[in-house]
Nucleic acid binder design. Structure first.
Lengths: 333, 333
DNA sequence: GAAATTTTGGACAACGTTGTTATATTGTCT
DNA sequence: AGACAATATAACAACGTTGTCCAAAATTTC
């Protein structure tokens, strides 16, 4: 690769002058700037970031550690948001995925340290509590879509309670009075919080106990999550006879659509359907389009980076930021 | 950050000795190895990769440039495969996504050059032809899920013709004789090649012209792709009356399922359905499970890295590698 | 016990940058 | 024209590491 000295030689100046031109420092006369720029062009010179890091002790690198990025599109949006914001701030993201068979967070953290990352973003594929070794205290660190079991890191999570509350309120507002909630595995944070929001909204409208229903569409057997949405939906719809169904995720809503159709009913007319995720193309593919609470992953990713950067400047804020969710209103209720 | 010299001081040896221990070079007596390792532990020393790169002129970094990673889960699997293989080979992936509003490949390439990446992988979100500036000739480069318009780069793409051929053959083998192909936008490479495979299989079975049908489920208006799968499916199924439908993608198959159900028919019994993608959880969520040709994205990502590494060692192989696709057999035909 | 050989350690240069400081060049004002 | 400031350039050290080479120490051989 061509170095700064070769450029200097071709341009007929000292290599320090070239450095000044490259870094847009003042104090180089215009004629020399032109000469240097021509030489850079001609030789195809690019500054060596590693060398610059060694000297400046500033890497402009942010480490992004993710658990299982490929399993769900969620983390992809987080990553994209983080990458965009990083780019805007002149930083580069170095992305590492945990190996699901051998999830060693510390090993990836070490890698980031060796690259002299200035901070770390840890992203999870679903809203959960994660425990971290004390190694994670080495650099400023921000969690996205998860919280620390010890609550000792700044975190950015979706406001699942608000989401549950808001969409239930919307259903009630539109006149539905018997809303069944087919929730995710009740162990996970998102499920618990959404349920609270659901209940809060029902309480505000004074919905009677016999017009409420919550059941889980997932059960955990031997650590594996089993999806039983179809069976549960069939049963709940025919027995509880709701006028609307609130699903824990869009992928389950697909099943609910099928169940409703097979019962000879029409979604959005005979029975309302609502959901959480806004999972890629799914809500738009369904007919009628699925109204669903969008989880603001992209924005969370962006916020993670900007928050990390302020954490680097001025550490100490370990609060949990709850990102509000937005309703994507279509025609299913 | 703690440096090699601080470690040396604490261990009571010269800093070169520490370097030898860190790099597992021979010629350090066991007692000193222990002393050095203890000092490293105690101070939390990590070698500075940037400094090492400056000296060794080897970055162990591979640049990964992707167009629009977030739009489709496809590229995520490619990325994951690439990352896994890179990790196995002791390399680090530096990931960059094109900004869809301002897709400047060269700018990202420059970034990789500045980090002294040893090679570049360019991944596309769907099988297509892409044109590259001559800047891309700077480093060894491998394309994934796309080819160069000038055919001047090694590329790894799915074997869409084989996929179309294989799944059609399977349908025929199971007794279907009137297979409608609801293909993607016929402009794109995948659609063209799958169609060739479809036709080749039908020819082998001597299927008559009136028992063949191809139509597009996508149309392009002003550069925007419009999905018209539902309308087309309804029309084709009621008029052409196929005994099986081959869909261009799983997301369209969902629509086809609904159309079939609404006509009072049952998928897998009255009419077979097959598709392409094996798009995340979709095929399993459908009932019956959707039999679909899996696009081997993860494997393509892995191969991209290993091929790039051999390209770095011995350049010159610009052939196009067609990755065979596998049928994920479920119950829809 | 001395010489020859092997093992181990350390001094120094180098990698491609940037920061600091001294020097050379230019311009301005008396 | 000369003094002085301002500006532009150059020389050199430093960043944290690895490669080279030679010296010192330890070990083996005679």
């Amino acid at each position: 690769m061509v170095t700064i000295k070769q450029v200097a030689e071709l341009a007929g100046v000292s290599f320090k002058t070239v450095s000044r031109v490259v870094n847009k420092e003042p104090g180089v006369k215009p004629a020399n700037i032109v000469k240097v720029e021509k030489a850079i062009q001609q030789l195809g010179y690019r500054p060596n970031k590693a060398a610059s890091l060694v000297r400046k002790k500033q890497s402009d690198i942010i480490g992004f550690i993710s658990d299982e990025i490929s399993t769900t599109p969620a983390s992809v949006a987080i990553l994209k948001g983080a990458q965009d914001m990083a780019w805007e701030k002149g930083k580069t993201l170095m992305v590492f995925n945990l190996d699901p068979n051998n999830p060693d967070k510390d090993k990836l953290y070490e890698e980031c340290l060796q690259h002299r990352a200035e901070g770390i973003i840890y992203g999870a594929m679903y809203h959960q509590a994660v425990s971290f070794s004390k190694l994670f205290k080495t650099l400023p660190t921000v969690l996205v879509n998860c919280i620390s079991t010890d609550n000792d890191f700044p975190a950015i999570v979706p406001d699942d309670e608000q989401a549950g509350y808001y969409i239930t309120k919307q259903l009630l507002y539109k006149g539905y009075r018997k809303i069944a909630f087919l929730n995710l595995n009740p162990q996970i944070i998102a499920a618990k919080q959404r349920q609270q929001g659901y209940i809060k909204a029902l309480n505000e409208y004074g919905i009677a106990e016999q017009n409420r229903h919550i059941s889980a569409i997932e059960t955990v057997i031997n650590g594996e999550t089993i999806n039983i949405a179809s069976k549960v939906a069939k049963q709940v719809i025919s027995e509880f006879k709701p006028d609307a169904v609130l699903c824990g995720k869009d992928l389950a809503a697909i099943k609910v659509y099928f169940v409703i159709e097979r019962l000879g009913l029409t979604v959005g007319k005979d029975i309302g359907v609502a959901s959480f995720d806004n999972w890629h193309d799914i809500p738009e593919i369904l007919e009628p389009g699925l109204s669903t609470m969008a989880l603001p992953y992209y924005e969370m990713g962006r916020l993670a980076v900007s928050r990390l950067l302020s954490e680097i400047k001025k550490p100490g804020d370990i609060s949990e930021y709850k990102m509000p969710c937005l309703l994507c209103d279509r025609a299913s209720f």
